[in-house]
Each structure stands twice: as structure tokens, then as C-alpha cells.
Amino acid sequence: MNVFRLAGDVSHLVAIIILLLKIWRSRSCAGISGKSQLLFALVFTTRYLDLFTVYISAYNTIMKVVFLALSYATVYLIYMRFRNTYDSENDSFRVEFLLVPVIGLSFLEHYAFTPMEVLWTFSIFLEAVAIMPQLFMITKTGEAESITTHYLFFLGLYRALYIANWVWRYHTEGFFDQIAVVSGVVQTIFYCDFFYLYVTKVVQGRSKMSLP
């Protein structure tokens, strides 16, 4: 464990909590892409299957349980509790355009052709594109609430910090996870456009951010 990875995990946790609290306190999921949240729940489900078979550390186990619980709670709030506030018309991204390539690629590129490894690879590739429906929804509605942009900021920051973690681990322990690194870089690049808007607009104190 290093400071970059810890900061990344904290940033990830903060993002998930920001979104969950926003939905719970406003009792609405307007402007939130349920599809992205479903994809994130799928990412955690397929990545954390080793929860009961491999013990890394108490931290690892606890964080996996927390991420799974919070992501399923978010999906529950969107599709069950506050489903009448779910904006399905604007949440129209065709997720099959993400799932098919990701499934295909995880069968082509993996460390071992075993169910656990292919599913882990699937979760890595899926995470890189899971935010697409949310970014698409924001471009469609033309704006994002300030809280949603903070959610996206911490979500993008988490994987950027993981890249720093991979650089650190490469130089200190020769660790190099090619699949995670390539996918993590692609994922972070997707946020660059948003990061620019976030820094230039939201930091200026405007309540809403309108994407071009």
C-alpha cells in the first residue's frame, strides 16, 4: 500500500458517498444515469468475486464489501426507491455498445483463461467505459448539478491517483499490471475533458456546469 493508492481508494469512496447522499437527501435521482450505476455495480461484482476465496488484508476485504454495498444501495435508490424521479428518457446510452466490445476484449486479452481472470479483466475494461452513459446524459441535458460534478471529479481523480500508484509500485517493487494500467489510462483520459470544464467552471462558483 502507498499514499497514492490510499488516496485513490479514499477519493473513490468519497465519490460514491457523495452520489449516494445526494440521491438520498434530495430524494431524487434526476440527472443521474442509472445505467452507469448499474455498470459500476457490475464492475464491483465481477471484480470482487475473490472476496471469499483470497484474503489480501482486512482493509482489502472491508473496502470490497463497502464498495459492493454502496453501489448496490445506489442502484436500489435509483431503480426502486426513487424510480419515479429516474430520467430514463435522457439516460438513453446504448450500453450494449459498451458491453459487447468489453466482453470480446476480455476474452482476447487476459492473464489466464479462467473464469475468475476473464471476469476480473472484464471488470477492468468495463470500469474504463462505465461512466459513458453519465457523461452522455449530461451532454444530452446540457447541464450537470454541482454535486454531480463533484462526484465525477472524485471518480476521475481516483483512477488518476491509481496511475501514480502504478508508477510508484513499478519503481519500488517492479510491479506492473499491464491490463489495469492500459485500461486505467484510457479511463482517466475520458475524464480529461470533464476535468478541464470542472476546473474552469465549477471552481468559479457557478452552480451548474453546462457541457458543450
Binding site: R5, D9, H12, R47, D50, V54, I56, N60, M63, K64, F67, Y111, W120, Y162, N165, G174, F175, F176, D177, Q178, A180
Partner: peptide
């Protein structure tokens, strides 16, 4: 690339 023996990251 050094392939990780097990995935120790979240």
C-alpha cells in the same frame, strides 16, 4: 510485463 500473481488492488 510482470504479471501479478494475484490482484491485491481494489
Amino acid at each position: 510485463s510482470v504479471e501479478p500473481l494475484r490482484h491485491d488492488e481494489l
